[in-house]
């Protein structure tokens, strides 16, 4: 069962017609087959029309789609012999951030990422992908493990941001994020990050100070949510659509600003229409990004990462807005 976004209503209607026809298929003849075929083509055309013209605010909805690929599914499909690891060795285990060791296309790697969860129960367990300091400290542990065993590090980001709570503040949310960024920047191993859905502010960059940053086609990456931005600058969250446009948070803008190195095309109608197909494309892109990195020595990897971030937003990088 699909869950449809507002602007996908025309697709929902077509698909429900198709389902209806299929239910009567036993009685019908060639006519029904033709009609189904005609409607299916129409679905494809409609999806193409909608998805080629997604405005930034619609991209935000797609990036937040409940059926977006989740960390557990990504790991399940891309990583063999996966062994999840837990805990920050200081305070606790934070299920908003998952990670562990396993094999990616035969090579041992360390994996980490935010997990939003798939069912209601699951989402609660993972705190909707919003991590507390323990989560970022666990991520840092995983980074250090990758460094110690000279393993590539793969990171998958899909989070609205770090969790805003009293306990999180008391246990040093800011420090935990700062240290995760610092550790990521210092690594002497290949580090590739992918923004899969939402790249929400500090909670995202904590896991994405990488050599290569990839983004799915309809993923977004932003310093603040459009709602948050609108409520501050427009004094009302109702202006989220305008804020999304002003923030230029789409993967395409990220590539133009060189914040993302590559945009990975999603299946027609978005990742939620073909999760496994999306994950396969993501895996291929991760491998492509990793190939040139695994032959570089540690100092160069660190140097490349540093240079990459220092170059962002500079006049000479030719980043004037169109």
């Amino acid at each position: 069962m699909h869950s449809f976004l507002d602007f996908e209503q025309s697709v929902a209607e077509l698909e429900s017609k198709i389902d209806g026809l299929r239910a009567t298929q036993g009685m019908g003849g060639v006519d029904i087959q033709d009609e189904i075929k005609r409607l299916e083509d129409k679905v494809q055309n409609t999806l193409q029309e909608i998805y080629e013209n997604l405005d930034p605010w619609r991209k935000v909805q797609v990036a937040r789609h409940p059926a977006r690929p989740k960390l557990a599914r990504i790991i399940d499909r891309l990583i063999e012999d996966y062994e999840p690891l837990a805990g920050d060795r200081t305070f606790g285990e934070d299920a908003a951030i998952g990670g562990g060791i396993g094999r990616f296309n035969g090579r041992s790697v360390v994996v980490m990422g935010t997990e939003k969860g798939s069912t209601t129960e699951d989402r609660l367990k993972h705190n909707f992908g919003m991590a507390r300091p323990e989560g970022y400290r666990k991520a840092r542990r995983l980074m250090e493990m990758a460094e110690r065993f000279n393993l590539p590090l793969l990171s998958f980001v899909d989070t609205a941001g770090a969790y805003p709570g009293v306990g999180a503040e008391e246990r040093g949310q800011a420090e935990a994020i700062a240290r995760a960024i610092e550790t990521g920047l210092q690594l002497r191993i290949p580090f590739v990050a992918a923004i899969v859905g939402e790249g929400g502010s500090g909670g995202a960059i904590a896991l994405a100070a990488a050599n290569r940053v990839l983004m799915l086609e309809h993923a977004v990456y932003s310093v603040i949510s459009p709602e948050g931005c609108a409520s501050i600058l427009w004094r009302s969250a109702d202006h989220a659509k305008e804020a999304a446009t002003a923030l230029r948070l789409t993967a395409q803008e990220m590539e133009r600003l060189k914040v993302a190195d590559r945009v990975i095309e999603e299946p027609l109608g978005g990742a939620h229409r073909d999760v496994d197909g999306t994950i396969d494309r993501l895996g291929a892109a991760m491998q492509n990004a990793l190939d040139p990195l695994v032959v570089m020595d540690g100092d160069r990897l660190r140097q490349q990462r540093r240079a990459r971030f220092l170059a962002l937003g500079q006049i000479e990088s030719g980043m004037a807005a169109e």
């Binding site: 990521g184 920047l185 995202a204 932003s222 310093v223 937003g313």
Partner: peptide, 22 residues
């Protein structure tokens, strides 16, 4: 905090300033 009006480029000042102090 970050200057929203510079969007993602303001977020990118987090790793950039971390590099600086390191």
């Amino acid at each position: 905090g970050a200057r929203m009006q510079e969007g993602i480029l303001s977020l990118m000042q987090m790793p950039r300033t971390v590099i600086a102090v390191d």
